[in-house]
Protein backbone atom coordinates (compact mmCIF):
# COMPACT_ATOMS: atom_id res chain seq x y z
CA UNK A 1 0.00 0.00 0.00
CA UNK A 2 1.44 3.39 -0.97
CA UNK A 3 1.79 6.29 1.43
CA UNK A 4 -0.91 8.34 -0.21
CA UNK A 5 -3.64 5.77 0.26
CA UNK A 6 -2.69 5.40 3.90
CA UNK A 7 -3.07 9.12 4.18
CA UNK A 8 -6.54 9.08 2.71
CA UNK A 9 -7.52 6.20 4.93
CA UNK A 10 -6.55 8.16 7.99
CA UNK A 11 -8.41 11.17 6.71
CA UNK A 12 -11.59 9.27 6.02
CA UNK A 13 -11.34 7.71 9.46
CA UNK A 14 -11.17 11.16 10.94
CA UNK A 15 -14.14 12.26 8.92
CA UNK A 16 -16.27 9.41 10.17
CA UNK A 17 -15.03 10.12 13.69
CA UNK A 18 -16.50 13.58 13.52
CA UNK A 19 -19.83 12.22 12.45
CA UNK A 20 -19.84 9.36 14.90
CA UNK A 21 -18.90 11.20 18.07
CA UNK A 22 -21.43 13.88 18.91
CA UNK A 23 -19.83 14.14 22.34
CA UNK A 24 -16.69 15.96 21.20
CA UNK A 25 -16.22 19.47 22.48
CA UNK A 26 -18.87 21.92 21.26
CA UNK A 27 -16.30 24.54 20.27
CA UNK A 28 -14.66 22.23 17.76
CA UNK A 29 -18.07 21.34 16.42
CA UNK A 30 -18.96 24.98 15.95
CA UNK A 31 -15.67 25.69 14.21
CA UNK A 32 -16.15 22.73 11.90
CA UNK A 33 -19.66 23.88 11.14
CA UNK A 34 -18.46 27.37 10.22
CA UNK A 35 -15.48 26.14 8.21
CA UNK A 36 -16.76 27.41 4.87
CA UNK A 37 -17.38 30.81 6.39
CA UNK A 38 -13.75 30.82 7.53
CA UNK A 39 -12.70 30.11 3.96
CA UNK A 40 -14.69 33.15 2.83
CA UNK A 41 -13.18 35.23 5.60
CA UNK A 42 -9.59 34.08 4.95
CA UNK A 43 -8.54 36.70 2.39
CA UNK A 44 -10.13 39.72 4.07
CA UNK A 45 -8.70 38.57 7.39
CA UNK A 46 -5.23 38.23 5.90
CA UNK A 47 -5.57 41.72 4.45
CA UNK A 48 -6.65 43.10 7.78
CA UNK A 49 -3.69 41.57 9.59
CA UNK A 50 -1.09 42.64 7.04
CA UNK A 51 -2.31 46.10 6.13
CA UNK A 52 -3.94 47.23 9.36
CA UNK A 53 -2.38 45.37 12.26
CA UNK A 54 1.21 45.06 11.04
CA UNK A 55 1.44 48.89 10.76
CA UNK A 56 0.13 49.10 14.33
CA UNK A 57 3.01 46.86 15.34
CA UNK A 58 5.30 49.06 13.27
CA UNK A 59 4.08 52.13 15.16
CA UNK A 60 6.45 51.11 17.98
CA UNK A 61 9.16 53.02 16.12
CA UNK A 62 7.62 56.07 17.76
CA UNK A 63 9.38 54.90 20.92
CA UNK A 64 12.60 54.05 19.13
CA UNK A 65 15.35 55.67 17.19
CA UNK A 66 14.47 53.99 13.92
CA UNK A 67 17.40 53.17 11.67
CA UNK A 68 16.49 51.59 8.36
CA UNK A 69 19.38 49.14 8.39
CA UNK A 70 18.49 47.86 11.88
CA UNK A 71 14.81 47.37 11.06
CA UNK A 72 11.79 47.98 13.26
CA UNK A 73 12.64 45.45 15.95
CA UNK A 74 16.39 46.02 15.96
CA UNK A 75 16.37 49.78 16.48
CA UNK A 76 17.14 51.14 19.94
CA UNK A 77 14.45 52.17 22.40
CA UNK A 78 14.38 55.83 23.34
CA UNK A 79 11.21 55.89 25.43
CA UNK A 80 9.05 58.97 25.16
CA UNK A 81 11.80 61.18 23.75
CA UNK A 82 10.01 61.80 20.44
CA UNK A 83 6.74 62.70 22.15
CA UNK A 84 8.45 65.08 24.55
CA UNK A 85 10.23 66.70 21.65
CA UNK A 86 6.94 67.25 19.80
CA UNK A 87 5.04 68.67 22.77
CA UNK A 88 7.92 71.03 23.53
CA UNK A 89 8.49 72.02 19.93
CA UNK A 90 7.93 75.50 18.65
CA UNK A 91 5.24 74.29 16.22
CA UNK A 92 3.16 72.26 18.68
CA UNK A 93 0.61 74.81 19.89
CA UNK A 94 0.21 76.42 16.51
CA UNK A 95 -0.51 73.11 14.80
CA UNK A 96 -2.86 71.96 17.50
CA UNK A 97 -4.69 75.28 17.39
CA UNK A 98 -5.00 75.19 13.60
CA UNK A 99 -6.32 71.64 13.69
CA UNK A 100 -8.92 72.39 16.33
CA UNK A 101 -10.07 75.67 14.77
CA UNK A 102 -10.52 74.10 11.36
CA UNK A 103 -12.37 71.16 12.87
CA UNK A 104 -14.75 73.11 15.08
CA UNK A 105 -15.47 75.67 12.40
CA UNK A 106 -16.28 72.88 9.97
CA UNK A 107 -18.40 71.01 12.49
CA UNK A 108 -20.50 74.06 13.34
CA UNK A 109 -20.84 75.43 9.81
CA UNK A 110 -21.71 72.15 8.17
CA UNK A 111 -24.34 71.21 10.76
CA UNK A 112 -27.41 73.34 9.89
CA UNK A 113 -27.34 73.41 6.08
CA UNK A 114 -28.15 69.79 5.26
CA UNK A 115 -31.02 69.94 7.76
CA UNK A 116 -32.33 73.14 6.20
CA UNK A 117 -32.14 71.59 2.74
CA UNK A 118 -33.89 68.41 3.84
CA UNK A 119 -36.73 70.28 5.59
CA UNK A 120 -37.16 72.56 2.60
CA UNK A 121 -37.17 69.73 0.08
CA UNK A 122 -39.80 67.97 2.16
CA UNK A 123 -42.24 70.85 1.65
CA UNK A 124 -41.46 71.42 -1.99
CA UNK A 125 -44.66 70.80 -3.95
CA UNK A 126 -43.10 70.54 -7.41
CA UNK A 127 -41.80 66.97 -7.67
CA UNK A 128 -39.71 67.65 -10.74
CA UNK A 129 -37.88 70.56 -9.14
CA UNK A 130 -37.33 68.45 -6.07
CA UNK A 131 -35.72 65.68 -8.12
CA UNK A 132 -33.51 68.18 -9.94
CA UNK A 133 -32.35 69.82 -6.70
CA UNK A 134 -31.49 66.44 -5.20
CA UNK A 135 -29.68 65.25 -8.28
CA UNK A 136 -27.59 68.41 -8.58
CA UNK A 137 -26.74 68.85 -4.91
CA UNK A 138 -25.67 65.21 -4.42
CA UNK A 139 -23.28 65.31 -7.37
CA UNK A 140 -20.40 67.46 -6.03
CA UNK A 141 -19.84 64.87 -3.30
CA UNK A 142 -18.17 62.65 -5.89
CA UNK A 143 -15.80 65.26 -7.32
CA UNK A 144 -12.19 64.54 -6.41
CA UNK A 145 -10.30 66.62 -3.88
CA UNK A 146 -7.72 67.61 -6.48
CA UNK A 147 -10.43 68.92 -8.77
CA UNK A 148 -12.22 70.66 -5.91
CA UNK A 149 -9.03 72.49 -5.00
CA UNK A 150 -8.51 73.27 -8.69
CA UNK A 151 -12.02 74.72 -8.83
CA UNK A 152 -11.42 76.75 -5.67
CA UNK A 153 -8.25 78.21 -7.10
CA UNK A 154 -9.84 79.11 -10.42
CA UNK A 155 -13.02 80.59 -8.99
CA UNK A 156 -11.22 82.58 -6.28
CA UNK A 157 -8.52 83.93 -8.55
CA UNK A 158 -8.14 87.64 -7.76
CA UNK A 159 -8.05 88.68 -11.41
CA UNK A 160 -10.20 86.33 -13.45
CA UNK A 161 -12.09 84.27 -10.86
CA UNK A 162 -15.87 84.10 -10.82
CA UNK A 163 -16.21 85.11 -7.17
CA UNK A 164 -14.19 88.29 -7.55
CA UNK A 165 -16.14 89.08 -10.70
CA UNK A 166 -19.34 88.97 -8.67
CA UNK A 167 -17.73 91.03 -5.89
CA UNK A 168 -16.63 93.53 -8.53
CA UNK A 169 -20.14 93.58 -9.99
CA UNK A 170 -21.43 94.92 -6.68
CA UNK A 171 -18.70 97.54 -6.68
CA UNK A 172 -16.28 96.11 -4.12
CA UNK A 173 -12.54 95.61 -4.48
CA UNK A 174 -11.31 92.15 -5.41
CA UNK A 175 -10.03 89.95 -2.61
CA UNK A 176 -6.94 87.79 -2.96
CA UNK A 177 -8.52 84.87 -1.13
CA UNK A 178 -5.64 82.43 -1.41
CA UNK A 179 -3.18 85.09 -0.31
CA UNK A 180 -4.92 85.98 2.96
CA UNK A 181 -4.07 83.97 6.05
CA UNK A 182 -7.38 84.82 7.68
CA UNK A 183 -9.34 83.50 4.69
CA UNK A 184 -7.89 80.02 4.78
CA UNK A 185 -10.25 78.36 7.24
CA UNK A 186 -13.31 79.90 5.58
CA UNK A 187 -12.22 78.70 2.16
CA UNK A 188 -11.73 75.23 3.50
CA UNK A 189 -14.99 75.08 5.42
CA UNK A 190 -17.37 76.69 2.94
CA UNK A 191 -16.11 74.69 0.00
CA UNK A 192 -16.75 71.63 2.14
CA UNK A 193 -20.27 72.78 2.88
CA UNK A 194 -20.79 73.34 -0.85
CA UNK A 195 -19.49 69.92 -1.75
CA UNK A 196 -21.32 67.84 0.83
CA UNK A 197 -24.57 69.66 1.61
CA UNK A 198 -26.63 67.45 -0.71
CA UNK A 199 -25.09 64.17 0.29
CA UNK A 200 -25.32 64.91 4.00
CA UNK A 201 -29.00 65.78 3.67
CA UNK A 202 -29.88 62.31 2.32
CA UNK A 203 -30.00 60.87 5.80
CA UNK A 204 -32.33 63.62 7.02
CA UNK A 205 -34.64 63.16 4.05
CA UNK A 206 -34.88 59.50 4.95
CA UNK A 207 -35.54 60.37 8.60
CA UNK A 208 -38.29 62.78 7.54
CA UNK A 209 -39.91 60.09 5.43
CA UNK A 210 -40.02 57.87 8.50
CA UNK A 211 -42.13 60.34 10.51
CA UNK A 212 -45.64 59.04 11.11
CA UNK A 213 -48.04 60.82 8.68
CA UNK A 214 -50.78 60.56 11.32
CA UNK A 215 -48.99 63.29 13.27
CA UNK A 216 -49.27 65.65 10.34
CA UNK A 217 -52.92 64.73 9.69
CA UNK A 218 -53.79 65.39 13.31
CA UNK A 219 -51.97 68.72 13.21
CA UNK A 220 -53.81 69.75 10.04
CA UNK A 221 -57.15 68.93 11.68
CA UNK A 222 -56.13 71.10 14.60
CA UNK A 223 -55.42 73.93 12.17
CA UNK A 224 -51.64 74.01 12.45
CA UNK A 225 -49.88 75.97 9.75
CA UNK A 226 -47.11 74.42 7.70
CA UNK A 227 -44.50 76.32 9.60
CA UNK A 228 -45.91 75.07 12.91
CA UNK A 229 -45.91 71.51 11.61
CA UNK A 230 -42.34 71.82 10.48
CA UNK A 231 -41.30 73.32 13.79
CA UNK A 232 -43.22 70.98 16.09
CA UNK A 233 -43.26 67.71 14.13
CA UNK A 234 -40.50 67.49 11.53
CA UNK A 235 -37.72 69.19 13.41
CA UNK A 236 -38.15 67.16 16.63
CA UNK A 237 -38.49 64.11 14.40
CA UNK A 238 -35.03 64.45 12.90
CA UNK A 239 -33.25 66.07 15.84
CA UNK A 240 -32.21 62.82 17.55
CA UNK A 241 -30.49 61.76 14.33
CA UNK A 242 -28.85 65.18 13.97
CA UNK A 243 -27.61 65.20 17.55
CA UNK A 244 -26.16 61.71 17.28
CA UNK A 245 -24.38 62.58 14.05
CA UNK A 246 -23.00 65.72 15.68
CA UNK A 247 -21.77 63.78 18.69
CA UNK A 248 -20.19 61.12 16.52
CA UNK A 249 -18.47 63.75 14.40
CA UNK A 250 -16.87 65.35 17.44
CA UNK A 251 -15.04 62.03 17.80
CA UNK A 252 -13.20 62.91 14.60
CA UNK A 253 -12.23 66.36 15.75
CA UNK A 254 -8.55 65.78 14.97
CA UNK A 255 -9.27 64.22 11.57
CA UNK A 256 -9.48 67.28 9.39
CA UNK A 257 -9.69 66.57 5.66
CA UNK A 258 -5.95 66.35 5.44
CA UNK A 259 -5.65 65.61 1.73
CA UNK A 260 -7.58 68.77 0.95
CA UNK A 261 -5.65 70.95 3.39
CA UNK A 262 -2.38 69.72 1.92
CA UNK A 263 -3.43 70.84 -1.55
CA UNK A 264 -4.77 74.18 -0.34
CA UNK A 265 -1.53 75.05 1.40
CA UNK A 266 0.75 77.71 0.03
CA UNK A 267 3.68 79.55 1.60
CA UNK A 268 1.45 82.45 2.59
CA UNK A 269 -1.31 80.58 4.41
CA UNK A 270 0.96 77.96 5.95
CA UNK A 271 0.77 79.67 9.32
CA UNK A 272 -2.95 78.92 9.48
CA UNK A 273 -3.06 75.78 7.37
CA UNK A 274 -0.44 73.53 8.96
CA UNK A 275 -2.34 70.79 10.78
CA UNK A 276 -1.16 67.67 12.58
CA UNK A 277 -1.56 65.35 9.59
CA UNK A 278 0.20 67.59 7.10
CA UNK A 279 3.00 68.05 9.63
CA UNK A 280 3.35 64.28 10.00
CA UNK A 281 3.59 63.96 6.25
CA UNK A 282 6.22 66.65 5.93
CA UNK A 283 8.39 65.51 8.81
CA UNK A 284 8.24 61.90 7.69
CA UNK A 285 8.33 61.94 3.93
CA UNK A 286 9.30 65.27 2.40
CA UNK A 287 11.78 66.80 4.85
CA UNK A 288 15.43 66.95 3.81
CA UNK A 289 16.31 64.55 6.58
CA UNK A 290 13.23 62.37 6.88
CA UNK A 291 12.65 61.46 10.51
CA UNK A 292 10.49 58.34 10.58
CA UNK A 293 10.41 57.94 14.34
CA UNK A 294 9.51 61.54 15.11
CA UNK A 295 6.81 61.58 12.44
CA UNK A 296 5.34 58.31 13.71
CA UNK A 297 5.32 59.66 17.25
CA UNK A 298 3.30 62.70 16.18
CA UNK A 299 0.90 60.47 14.27
CA UNK A 300 0.56 58.15 17.24
CA UNK A 301 -0.05 61.08 19.55
CA UNK A 302 -3.01 61.99 17.37
CA UNK A 303 -4.25 58.41 16.97
CA UNK A 304 -4.34 57.83 20.71
CA UNK A 305 -6.25 61.04 21.44
CA UNK A 306 -8.58 60.13 18.60
CA UNK A 307 -9.21 56.67 20.00
CA UNK A 308 -10.03 58.01 23.44
CA UNK A 309 -12.35 60.63 21.96
CA UNK A 310 -14.09 58.10 19.74
CA UNK A 311 -14.71 55.66 22.55
CA UNK A 312 -16.02 58.42 24.80
CA UNK A 313 -18.20 59.85 22.09
CA UNK A 314 -19.63 56.45 21.17
CA UNK A 315 -20.60 55.91 24.79
CA UNK A 316 -22.35 59.28 24.88
CA UNK A 317 -24.09 58.56 21.59
CA UNK A 318 -25.35 55.23 22.87
CA UNK A 319 -26.76 56.88 25.96
CA UNK A 320 -28.38 59.62 23.87
CA UNK A 321 -29.82 57.11 21.46
CA UNK A 322 -31.42 55.20 24.28
CA UNK A 323 -32.70 58.37 25.85
CA UNK A 324 -34.15 59.62 22.59
CA UNK A 325 -35.68 56.33 21.53
CA UNK A 326 -37.43 55.36 24.73
Amino acid sequence: MSMSTIGTNIKSNNATDIKRKPGRSPIVKKIVKSRQLYILMALPFLYLIIFKYVPMYGAQIAFKNFVVTKGIWGSDWVGLKNFVRFVNSYDFWRILKNTLILSFYNLVASFPFPILLALGLNYLRNRFFRKVVQMVTYAPHFISIVVIVGIIKELLDPRIGMVNKIIGFFGFDPINFMGEISMFSSIYVWSDVWQHIGFNCIIFIAALAAIDPALHEAAVVDGASKFRRMWHIDLPGIMPMAIILLILNTGHILDVGFEKVLLLQNPINLKASEIIDTYVYKVGLTAQVANYSYSTAIGLFKSVINLVLLLAVNKIAQKTRQASLW
Partner: peptide, 21 residues
Protein backbone atom coordinates in the same frame (compact mmCIF):
# COMPACT_ATOMS: atom_id res chain seq x y z
CA UNK B 1 -13.85 39.27 13.89
CA UNK B 2 -16.23 42.17 14.24
CA UNK B 3 -14.09 43.75 16.96
CA UNK B 4 -10.94 43.19 14.88
CA UNK B 5 -12.58 44.97 11.95
CA UNK B 6 -14.10 47.83 13.96
CA UNK B 7 -10.93 48.56 15.87
CA UNK B 8 -9.12 49.45 12.64
CA UNK B 9 -11.66 52.22 12.04
CA UNK B 10 -10.74 53.79 15.35
CA UNK B 11 -7.01 53.33 15.47
CA UNK B 12 -4.36 53.13 12.77
CA UNK B 13 -0.62 52.62 12.72
CA UNK B 14 -0.20 55.91 10.92
CA UNK B 15 1.40 57.18 7.78
CA UNK B 16 5.01 56.12 8.24
CA UNK B 17 4.43 52.51 9.38
CA UNK B 18 2.11 52.06 6.40
CA UNK B 19 4.70 53.50 4.10
CA UNK B 20 7.44 51.28 5.54
CA UNK B 21 5.20 48.22 5.12
Amino acid sequence: FMILFMFTTMFTGGLIPNYLL
